[in-house]
Design a protein around this nucleic acid. Sequence first.
DNA 1: ATTCTAACCTAATCACACC
DNA 2: GGTGTGATTAGGTTAGAAT
Length: 184
Amino acid sequence: MAHLMLLSSDLLVSLSPETMATQCRRSRTSFTEEQLKILVQAFSQNPYPGYTAKQRLAVEINAEESRIQIWFQNRRARHGFLKKPKKNVDPSKDHASPIEKIQDGTDRRCRTSFTSSQLQTLKNAFTENPYPGIDSREQLAEEIGVPESRVQIWFQNRRARLRVQRKRGLEEALYQRQNQGQDL
DNA sequence: ATTCTAACCTAATCACACC
DNA sequence: GGTGTGATTAGGTTAGAAT
């Protein structure tokens, strides 16, 4: 068990994401002008749509919600916009904007709760390959009955937490070594 | 070749349940 | 109060398609 985790950790550092993760991406979606028009319009109104807003958009332009999310992420990164992503500055004060009550920052996707068997499947897959391509992710998603986008997020989070865990371990080891050296 | 941008990544953080 | 973990963000990289 422990050595399997080490194996995956070694993969994480030895094989760069570029070589591993990008060998099987999802095929690039090309939005039609009509779709783009709607997306751009929505972005100009609100660069930070909540989950329900993104879902609405997804239905409206007949695309997956995950693609909408990626599109907004990319758009925010490249085009300037006015809003601030900061936490709600005015908690108790309620400004005169009753219209947008849906997307007031707390409109997130409902947290998906994985069953232990689903987690086991994901963990097993992670030890085999921490950077699954689109095919593997779709297969996993199908197998455990969860959207592929959730599988992708799960792998991202797991890699991130493995990295910080591993970094902490290194720091602790270094700290101990320094202490020993000074005491000697 | 260059340009544009979807897909993907990391790092940090939020949210929220649980203890 | 901390821990665990799914969801979101900023910001950077990779790669496919159009120019």
